[in-house]
Lab assay of single mutants.
Amino acid sequence: MPVRRGHVAPQNTFLDTIIRKFEGQSRKFIIANARVENCAVIYCNDGFCELCGYSRAEVMQRPCTCDFLHGPRTQRRAAAQIAQALLGAEERKVEIAFYRKDGSCFLCLVDVVPVKNEDGAVIMFILNFEVVMEKDMVGSPAHDTNHRGPPTSWLAPGRAKTFRLKLPALLALTARESSVRSGGAGGAGAPGAVVVDVDLTPAAPSSESLALDEVTAMDNHVAGLGPAEERRALVGPGSPPRSAPGQLPSPRAHSLNPDASGSSCSLARTRSRESCASVRRASSADDIEAMRAGVLPPPPRHASTGAMHPLRSGLLNSTSDSDLVRYRTISKIPQITLNFVDLKGDPFLASPTSDREIIAPKIKERTHNVTEKVTQVLSLGADVLPEYKLQAPRIHRWTILHYSPFKAVWDWLILLLVIYTAVFTPYSAAFLLKETEEGPPATECGYACQPLAVVDLIVDIMFIVDILINFRTTYVNANEEVVSHPGRIAVHYFKGWFLIDMVAAIPFDLLI
């Protein structure tokens, strides 16, 4: 008679799926529990143990900040960024110097990925580790590398530091407007667009060049630039800015003055950032001319202004700041037409079709709590990747769950009947059967004279019903998954307890 339990259901295979997918890609990662103190490590794979030199037993239950890997060259700011990422709910990448158990130093890129439950609360953290440099290539500990984003994938490793954006290309926007319009339909740009040429040739750093990471940081200074100062900065030398009595002219307006920039070969870094931020506020060169004239017309309804409409929906549905990093990277690809469009465009503009998908598509409701890094690593669709929660398995109709209350009560009843059979069957065979043979035949009273025979008949009927119930009862397979398919249940029961239950259900007393 089957006594099969499996009270692990309803099970959740999400954690096993993450481990299996990460292991298949030869990654070095740990999984931490966000619900406990210090976000203790609950799993670390073999790749991480080989990377740091510690065994799994030495890593388990330690804080996922990996303070046991810190050393003299470990930056405090990087460690603080990892700790801050564990307090938030967004994906974050941090470069930090770690030390192995043998004392060797290596520069590592740590990717902190939160995993949320159905309520939107962070319950786990996945920390992925990628070695960037070994100890002989690690720089000085005073050099802070965590304020910069990861290198873009479309640049060669040897040319990542030679990417320079020439400031004269930004200063000569109005001069290039006529050349853009003359391109017409034969050019790649839309009317009114501004073409910015980027020099990728390796050259020595000069005062006129600005690194790509500095251009990325310009967006942080746009908020500090007032509207009046932006307007004066875009007017140009024809209309000098008016300053109040006793007030000095704005240095932001002076930063885009061609006369002032041409007199000296070098520009201050602050002026460069502010000038680029001011130019980015204009949607095209037409807006710059309109600002000089004193009238700013409404933005025209053409394809170039609607190019950012799908980007707005993608940004609203993005799951991490990696989408913004990807957008900034692609927006700086050289030799393309940049349409400086305000994100607050007309909502009635139709979304044009684009061959290049900048932001990841909208994630469906079932995966809105899973970050983009987890979705990318697992390579699963929205119909396959579940949320991290207890999910009731989908069972067929008329199927009994093996952990249901009805099955528990039924098993206790069958257990009592088995005990009765084990006690009274030998007793009936030894004593009652002998008395029946010696006594007179009682054929007239039937079952009324033999109450134990009636009980034995009921017990046999219950055993037959138990066999039928076992054909529709779920079970737990070797992978700790609840199986509810009727065919698989029948095959599993035939290979197991079916023969024993059938022999126990045969009414031998009635056959004798």
Rank of each mutant, 00 (worst) to 15 (best):
A9W: 14
P10G: 13
Q11W: 07
T13K: 06
T13I: 06
L15H: 04
I18E: 03
R20L: 06
R20S: 09
E23L: 01
R27A: 14
K28H: 11
I30G: 01
I31A: 01
N33P: 01
A34I: 03
R35P: 09
E37M: 09
I42L: 07
Y43V: 01
N45R: 01
D46W: 04
C52E: 01
S55T: 07
S55G: 09
V59L: 10
V59H: 01
M60L: 14
T65W: 09
F68N: 01
F68Q: 01
R73D: 08
R73W: 06
R76P: 15
A78S: 15
A79C: 08
A79W: 01
A79H: 13
I82A: 01
A83C: 01
L86F: 01
L87Y: 14
G103F: 06
G103R: 13
S104K: 08
C105T: 15
V112C: 06
V115W: 09
E118D: 11
G120D: 14
G120L: 14
L127S: 01
M133K: 14
D136A: 06
G139N: 07
S140A: 10
S140K: 14
P141A: 12
P141T: 06
T145Q: 11
N146G: 08
P151G: 12
T152F: 09
A156D: 07
T162W: 14
T162I: 05
P168M: 01
L171A: 14
A172S: 09
A175D: 07
R176I: 01
E177H: 13
V180K: 10
G183M: 07
G183P: 09
A185C: 09
G186H: 14
G186N: 07
A190F: 03
G192R: 01
V194H: 05
V195L: 05
V198E: 03
D199Y: 01
L200H: 11
S209W: 13
A211W: 01
L212Q: 05
D213N: 01
V215M: 06
V215I: 13
G224H: 09
G224R: 14
A228Q: 03
A228P: 14
P237H: 15
P237F: 07
R242T: 15
R242G: 15
G246V: 14
P249R: 08
H254N: 07
N257C: 15
P258F: 08
D259I: 06
A260G: 12
A260D: 15
S263I: 04
S264G: 14
S264W: 14
R269Q: 04
S272H: 11
E274V: 11
C276W: 05
S284H: 08
D286E: 14
I288C: 15
I288R: 11
P298Q: 08
H302M: 12
M308A: 11
G314P: 07
L316F: 07
L324E: 13
R326A: 13
R328M: 05
T329G: 06
I330V: 12
K332R: 07
I333P: 15
Q335V: 03
Q335D: 11
Q335K: 14
T337L: 12
T337G: 12
L349K: 14
E357K: 09
A360F: 03
K362Y: 11
K364M: 10
T367V: 09
H368D: 05
V370R: 09
V370C: 10
V374C: 01
Q376V: 08
G381L: 04
G381S: 07
